[in-house]
Design a binder for these strands. Structure first.
Lengths: 362, 362
DNA sequence: ATGTAGTGTGAGACCGGTCTCAATTCGGAG
DNA sequence: CTCCGAATTGAGACCGGTCTCACACTACAT
């Protein structure tokens, strides 16, 4: 019972009620702002609350109302600017609607994602926004849907899961960007992503456990085929994560191969950065020796020499959209599942040129 | 009573107990993993829990234990990579110790900070990590300290507040970097920060409401004075925030003045980026026409031409440190208030040269 | 005077856990 | 065979709010 005797015990409605000489129920009505109370009593309670510096216990409140006023976000990696902005946007929108945000980082690991979800559900969040780390392992997400807790998938749709989705037009964007490279004369194209595979070679789309990446590669391959390029699958490079320099090694292997690609489409700004760094270190020039296009308009892409052409994803809008869909559902809306695809924008800068061999021929 | 009749009503210990044919208390002992239980009963309860897909309600748990297993973070701007990494680091460390994280963004506004703190305290977080937006307005932080809730100030110390602090050696770092510029021959130096002031001119340190910036400017001025530079205060530029292009305008005014500085020390990577962009747009070259040094080793600074020299702050370590101090206190440690100052590292790249006038004289 | 509607208030159940304490069971010592 | 203590278990209070319901009291129509 030390909690009761400690001088730092938080003030409760009962304390306020006692001081204002009313019942706990009445004090609660004033403090919670719900029932009918006479003006006189209201003032007395408010004065008592102020005098005692009363702070409502949201946990207790959530307990009885069943609503926590909180939404949970699970992202792959907050350190990644893409997710940083998404979180910012979601949290802005949430606050605007009176919700708070609990953040969890999955580090792109399903197990961590499961654990995070467990905690968030334990904390009884009113809804969830998740970027699923692995679309082959979604039983836990299915559980969420089954339990009727509002869920929005961010950036990565999952087929056959009855949840709202907010994503960008990955396939089309990749298709268009690849076409752009093909039109510049490239025939040896590579698509580089951070995904893992053992062995690290692309053998088929069933390997691709991140749905947005899958869509992009799909677009990339389709464009290559449309251009009559043979075996474009050989150009898909699963470079692995940043830990332990694995990604850098893959990129070096790719760029220093006997017949290196003349153009690369990078799946995110982090691999693109790695590619840029390797090229810089090896003295390879853009766009003379390699054309480069990356997904996501990261800060750095606009200040390099030359600046990098990118596929700009409307991350902030995606976050806002996701939060709004979620909050609408939390507030009782229950339309059929929606799938929002936001358009990307191609930003042409200076990183696309004609392939070297072609130049030599001129 | 719809909560009771709904088929989606969450499963409670009572439900599990009923199915396992034991008392609620016994079921709770198994599920909560505390009291003594016979092996046989334990298995029966666990089986029942699994069959019903029981998920403990952390809110209820927190209610009775008084601990939420959650720490609150209030940062100025998650979109800023500096804070992104800090959040990542804090959240990694927290999870390692079995804590969760609730994130709030103050947008560098005290009022938002106050509101965030109110919510976090309402949610009964076990401790708080805050980057105070304004060191002239800290009554709310004082309240936290008074209520005995563990609090760690991140990056920005506040004088006279009995809370642990984790920061970097801002004053020394600024002093050393300024000295480096002075040694390169510069006499017209500027320090550019995102702080606001009306009018936007530096009149004295009492204007500086962010303590880390204050320390840096202090170091900058001290170095200038040590070098015999007169009225170095004139070089302090309070450029304002990024909204509405105010910052860009300030930077342009500074660079296009009749007697522009020959070297700039940028207070963070965001203003530095703005400066770089303006220079690029105006065709000003680094380091020929202006030497530039920035706080924080942002991604982009290493890939520009030339790359930018920076003062590298050990953000990840700072976050880890902060989380560890906090968690130690939450777990009952109560040593006197600690002030951790982590060392920065100067990374020399290619953005420092001799001032133009000097070059002309050669 | 009686009925009736409406307003403000208090008593106490409830949310879903934890935890105290008393009751029950069982084994072994005396 | 009886008694003591350890090991389990159950009943119920408690955390700090919300919310239902009953009751007292006023006001106005019948």
């Amino acid at each position: 019972m030390d909690r009761k005797t400690s001088p730092f015990r938080p003030v409760t409605v009962a304390d306020v009620a006692r001081r204002a000489e009313v019942s706990k129920a009445t004090a609660a009505r004033v403090l919670g702002g719900y029932g009918p109370v006479s003006e006189e009593v209201k003032l007395r309670v408010q004065a008592a609350a102020k005098a005692l510096d009363y702070r409502p216990n949201e946990l207790a409140r959530s307990m009885s109302t069943g609503k926590s006023g909180t939404i949970g976000i699970v992202v792959g990696d907050i350190e990644n600017a893409f997710f940083g902005i998404a979180v910012r946007s979601i949290s802005d929108t949430a606050h605007r609607h009176g919700f708070n945000v609990i953040l969890a980082n999955s580090g792109e690991e399903v197990e961590a994602e499961k654990a995070a979800l467990k905690v968030l559900v334990g904390k009884r969040v009113d809804g969830l926004i998740v970027t699923p780390a692995d679309n082959r392992n979604v039983a836990h997400l299915r559980d969420i849907v089954r339990s009727r807790r509002p869920l929005v998938l961010f950036d990565r749709p999952i087929e056959g899961l009855a949840a709202d989705v907010v994503a960008s037009d990955d396939r089309d964007a990749a298709f268009a960007a690849t076409m752009r490279l093909v039109e510049a004369g490239h025939r040896r194209l590579a698509y580089v992503t951070a995904l893992n595979a053992e062995p690290p070679v692309f053998t088929g789309p069933e390997q691709l456990y991140t749905s947005s990446v899958k869509a992009r590669i799909d677009g990339f391959l389709a464009a290559c085929r449309a251009a009559g390029i043979e075996e474009p699958e050989c150009g898909v490079c699963l470079a692995g994560g940043t830990v332990g320099g694995q990604q850098r090694a893959s990129v070096e292997r790719l760029l220093l191969a006997a017949e290196p690609p003349t153009a690369i489409l990078a799946s995110d700004s982090l691999v693109a950065f790695e590619i840029f760094k390797v090229m810089q270190a090896r003295g390879l020039r853009i766009p003379d020796e390699l054309s480069l296009v990356s997904f996501y308009d990261a800060e750095w892409t606009s200040v390099t020499t030359p600046p990098i052409s990118v596929i700009d994803q409307p991350v902030y809008d995606m976050g806002t959209q996701a939060a709004e869909l979620l909050i609408a559902r939390i507030n009782g809306d229950s339309p059929p599942v929606r799938h929002c695809v936001l358009p990307t924008r191609f930003i042409e800068r200076g990183s696309i040129g004609a392939p070297r061999r072609l130049m030599a021929a001129i």
